[in-house]
Design a binder for these strands. Structure first.
Length: 436
RNA sequence: CGGAGCGUAGCGCAGUCUGGUAGCGCAUCAGUCUGGGGGACUGAGGGUCGUGGGUUCGAAUCCCGCCGCUCCGACCA
């Protein structure tokens, strides 16, 4: 992407409404613009990050055996009346009336819909278990939206739903999702810790929320630092081996982790001092087992081997995809701007032409840009070097290739790593080798 | 939902108390000089002062209604 032809509106000054780092930086780096309270337009650069995160979530869901589908944003009120939540959900639910006076709503979640869908098509115990998910926009009419995309009203969420024949099988699905979550967050370079949670308006009795430490978090959290040292992505756990899932789950639950409400001082005191982690936490994911609550309400049952009807045991599993963009920035930024993890960065590198119009600099930059394919932002503006350095730091791509007349004369450029600030004079070939 | 505040150029703000027909910085456009961490100079463009009504010779300014946005608290993926 050439900056002179791109819509990447960076801001030197911070808009007055942005209170926290991630919100401030998302506006300044041209990732999003607010269009109404708690509702954001994703600009080209922000969308690329959102898509990258979405893709990691998708790959890990698929790896765990979940199947992707896509349900609508608009739902019929009737569906929710069956479960009783049409009344219970209250003002958080955005209710809409269509031209025929039919009561609709903009979905805040999809338990009713998915259950109703499967109810019509799954009739035998042989067709279970199933785990289905979709990545779709949701709307919750928060009384007080704030913190940019971290607590917007409209948000992109991955929600998965499991259907099993019995409790033991439902627990297996639950553990698969938990493992998928640990892998997902690690790939996004976040330390998200599962904590036993209250089940909230969805109901149920087995529930964990995944929390990332950040000063703007909504609640105080406590956990064992050992969580941070486990490599889930390269671990040996196999989703299809129940022994592996048991071992995984035992490992998870053997380490201390709790939100304020569930904090147990006695158990906390057994954690060695150097491993204690404490601070505010942002919830980035939540998993629930809630038994037959929705299957029963929506009239879903399957024939068992003996002909008797079985009401499936369900669970649901959410990840706040758009919220993660904010959460990552909260965790990865400095005074100058964002520091994107490699896995979700919108591009790999910025190419800074420090002297646009200088034949050597231009040639080198064009050459690098062509060879990096669609993986770089080329700052081909005629602005001064300082402007380019500041914008590059703000946007926060992992690498900066600095092309100035000094080095260019010798065929050398400077390569800077955004995260560490390290710079080195290198040849063109080695730049490409390093970045591609 | 309780409490508070703000709406003036793309962004950040002054002007409102004490009414006289809109200003500053940054950004934008043209040009010149510059050229390794938001450069300098010259010139230019851009505003129904959120909106509707009222008071007044005259309203960004005073009064009333409405809308939008934000902050604190309760709530919350």
């Amino acid at each position: 992407m050439r900056l002179t032809r791109s819509f990447l509106p960076t801001l030197k000054e911070t808009p007055a409404e942005a209170q926290i780092a991630s919100h401030r930086l998302m506006l300044r780096a041209g990732l999003v613009r607010q269009t109404s309270a708690g509702i954001y337009a994703w600009l080209p650069l922000g969308l690329r990050v959102l898509r990258n995160i979405e893709q990691i979530v998708r790959e890990e869901q698929d790896a765990a055996g979940a199947q992707e589908m896509l349900m609508p944003t608009l739902q019929s009120a009737e569906l929710w009346e069956k479960s009783g939540r049409y009344e219970d959900y209250g003002k958080e639910m955005l209710r809409i009336v269509d031209r025929h006076d039919r009561r609709m709503l903009y979905g805040p979640t999809n338990e009713e819909m998915i259950t109703d869908l499967l109810q019509g098509s799954i009739k035998s115990y042989r067709e279970l278990p199933q785990i289905l998910y979709h990545i779709q926009w949701k709307f919750r009419d928060e009384v007080r939206p704030r913190f940019g995309v971290m607590r917007g009203r409209e948000f992109l969420m991955k929600d998965a739903y499991s259907f099993d024949l019995d409790y033991a099988s439902a627990v297996v699905s639950y553990r698969k999702m938990m493992l998928a979550y640990m892998r997902t967050f690690q790939r996004i370079d976040l330390k998200a810790i599962p904590m036993v949670a209250d089940t909230g308006p969805i109901g149920g009795d087995l529930s964990h929320e995944f929390i990332v430490l950040a000063s703007t978090g909504e609640s105080q959290v406590f956990y064992d630092g050992d969580f941070e040292n486990i490599d889930w992505v390269n671990s040996e756990f196999d989703y299809e081996k129940s022994g592996d899932l048991d071992a995984f789950y035992n490992q998870m639950t053997s380490m201390y982790a709790a939100t304020e409400e569930k904090h147990d001082l006695t158990a906390w005191s057994t954690v060695p001092k150097e491993r204690k982690r404490e601070g505010r936490g942002i919830e980035v994911g939540h998993i629930f087992y809630f038994g037959t609550r929705y299957s029963k309400a929506m009239g879903m049952s399957v024939a068992g081997p003996d002909g008797a009807q079985i009401i499936p045991e369900m669970g649901s599993y959410g990840i706040g995809v758009s919220r993660l963009v904010g959460a990552v920035i909260e965790a990865k930024h400095d005074e100058a701007g964002i520091i994107w993890p490699d896995a979700i960065a919108p591009y790999r590198a910025s190419i800074l032409n420090l002297k646009q119009g200088d034949a050597t600099c231009d040639t080198i930059c064009e050459d690098l840009y062509a060879k990096l394919g669609g993986n770089a932002i080329y700052d081909d503006r005629t602005d001064r070097a300082g402007v380019k350095f500041n914008d590059a730091d703000l946007i926060g791509l992992p690498w900066q290739i600095i092309v100035g007349p000094r080095g260019a004369a010798n065929g050398m450029v400077e390569l800077k790593r955004r995260a560490t600030g390290e710079r080195a004079e290198v040849s063109l070939d080695s730049v490409l080798a390093k970045i591609n």
